[in-house]
Simulated assay, not measured.
Amino acid sequence: MTTLLETRYRAVLRLLPASYRREREEEMVETYLWDIDRDLQDQSRPTLGEVASIAALAVRCRLGAPGSPRRYAVLGAAVRLFALAAVLLQAASAVVDRILELTWSFTHGASGRQMFLSGFTGRGATDTVVAVLTWTLPLLWAVAYFALLHDRRRPARYSALGAALPTLWPLVRPLTGDGMPPGVPWYETSAALLAWLPALALCAAHHRDAPPARLPAGSPGLVFLAGCVVTGGSLVLVPGAADFVWAPATGFVVGALGWLLWRVRRGDGTSPGAALALAALGLLVLAARVAALYPWLHVPGAGVLLGGGLGQTAALALLTAALAVVGGRDLARR
Rank of each mutant, 00 (worst) to 15 (best):
R208W: 05
G218H: 06
V254I: 12
L194A: 15
A204K: 02
A226Y: 12
G251C: 09
A226E: 10
H207C: 00
A213M: 01
G233N: 10
A195M: 08
P198R: 09
P220K: 11
G240T: 07
A226K: 14
F224K: 11
A217W: 09
S234W: 14
G221E: 06
P248D: 08
A217D: 06
A226N: 13
D243I: 06
A204F: 00
V254T: 10
G218M: 02
C203A: 12
A217M: 06
L194F: 14
G255E: 00
L202D: 00
H206S: 07
A249D: 01
G255C: 02
G232Q: 10
V254Q: 09
G233A: 10
L194M: 14
D243M: 06
L200N: 05
G232A: 13
L235M: 15
G240N: 07
A205Q: 03
P248N: 12
P216N: 07
G218P: 02
G251V: 07
S219W: 04
P198L: 03
L225F: 13
H207K: 03
F224A: 15
L237A: 13
G240I: 01
V236E: 10
L215M: 03
W246Q: 13
S234K: 13
H207F: 00
G221C: 07
L225Q: 14
G221P: 04
A217R: 13
R208S: 09
A210E: 00
D243V: 07
L225R: 14
C228S: 11
G232R: 13
G258Q: 04
L257G: 12
P216G: 08
V236C: 12
L194R: 14
V223N: 06
V223Q: 07
F244I: 13
L222A: 15
F244Y: 15
G218L: 02
C203E: 02
L225N: 13
P239V: 06
L197D: 04
V238T: 11
V236W: 12
A205R: 00
A256V: 01
S219Y: 04
F252K: 14
G232H: 11
P216K: 09
G251H: 11
F252T: 10
V223I: 08
P211D: 04
A199F: 02
A204H: 00
W196C: 10
S219E: 05
A205M: 01
C203Q: 05
S234M: 14
L235R: 15
T250G: 15
A226L: 15
T250S: 15
A249N: 03
A242P: 03
P198H: 08
F252V: 09
P248F: 09
W259K: 06
H206E: 00
H206L: 03
F252I: 09
H207S: 02
D209L: 05
A204N: 01
A213W: 00
A205Y: 00
V230C: 12
A199M: 04
G251W: 07
L257H: 14
V254E: 06
P248W: 08
L225W: 14
G240M: 05
A226P: 08
A241M: 02
L197R: 10
P211Y: 04
L215G: 04
W246V: 10
L237Y: 10
A204D: 01
V236H: 13
V229L: 14
T231C: 07
C203F: 06
G240H: 08
S219K: 11
A226M: 11
G221S: 11
H207T: 04
L197E: 03
L215R: 07
A201Q: 04
S234R: 14
V230Y: 13
A204S: 00
C228V: 08
T250D: 10
V253K: 10
P211H: 05
V230L: 12
V223P: 03
